[in-house]
Design a protein around this nucleic acid. Sequence first.
DNA 1: GCCCAGCCGTAGACACTGTCTACGGCCGAC
DNA 2: GTCGGCCGTAGACAGTGTCTACGGCTGGGC
Lengths: 194, 194
Amino acid sequence: MDLRDRLVRVGGELVDSEGIGALSLREIARRAGVSHGAPRRYFPTHLELLSAVAREGFTELAARAEAALADGPGGPRARLSVLARIYLDFAVERRGRYELMFRHDILNSGYLGLRDTSLPLFHLLTDLVAQALPSHTPAPSPEVVAAALWANLHGIAELWNWGSLTLATGAADPGSFLEAALTAHLGPTPGGDA
Amino acid sequence: MDLRDRLVRVGGELVDSEGIGALSLREIARRAGVSHGAPRRYFPTHLELLSAVAREGFTELAARAEAALADGPGGPRARLSVLARIYLDFAVERRGRYELMFRHDILNSGYLGLRDTSLPLFHLLTDLVAQALPSHTPAPSPEVVAAALWANLHGIAELWNWGSLTLATGAADPGSFLEAALTAHLGPTPGGDA
DNA sequence: GCCCAGCCGTAGACACTGTCTACGGCCGAC
DNA sequence: GTCGGCCGTAGACAGTGTCTACGGCTGGGC
């Protein structure tokens, strides 16, 4: 296997298990069994390696979303609920990776490449929102609603991971916040609660 | 002036102007005009110094909120709008500081002290939400709505600072997202738009 | 007035980090 | 068979956070 891919994979396992603080260049190189100078042949800088690890996270998140949305047709609102759940589950399960994926202070250099990987996900969200939006009232554009919903999801994910939501409300599961966010931004579910 | 206070102040100026990456222990010591070992007398660890800088941020945010809410009485919904705006403005103006304040991977050691400083702000939010919540429907508890609103605000702040909201929607000001979040979580404004 | 103790900051060492550079070894092309 | 180029090694360098030994200054007890 290519050393380049191996480095990204090792970095991914490392950030998934040990968190963002363990992602030093030399540690990745050690775990990949090469010297500390080897990664430089493929990633001119430490941050570019981290960007590649983050990008891998985006592709996996997109794959999860695609897989979950593939089998059941369902209405757009139900699909949005699934998508939001996928997003939140990813953020909680792969906490370190999720943090890395949104650490823009780290990833600015590789940001252009990252954007290409994360934009399709946002477009998927926008499309679903456009289908799910009620047709009454002068609703704002789907992009705006999708962005607002995304901001809400991201905030829930971060606060949940910090324990702030549990601390403030005693909630044992972020699902209620998720559904509240969907209802808040899209209106009440047309077909009932389920 | 106490060296302890000077270090916190210098660190605060540094994170406000240069961002979180510039906040090394030795750089703070240099700018304070002392040797790199001096801070250790007051902060056993680099992270505890950073926690103190973050705490100063929370107290200033609380002071801003208090000042803004003091002069005008206004309805609870209007006061919530002011509070949300204060929060968002702080996050945008003091971007580095805001990032630091919510970098829980850094601040875990001083987290207990931080919680004491940030909890009153959340209680203020909860109180206002309790007053602003419409009395129809089996509304969820004010804590839950306040937490959901906070999560939304935080998400807006982060995505806005990253430029993601501008990129996705072309918006030139985060205010529309802010008002949308208020409406989404509290229901439409009873007294109109203003 | 002197002396001594304790606080405060200095300075150097240590392990670790990311980056840069000079080097060798191996493999394929000619 | 020889030569060139890719790949990884290894060491140097500046920077970091932490730890420790040291000096200097100040204030209190006699």
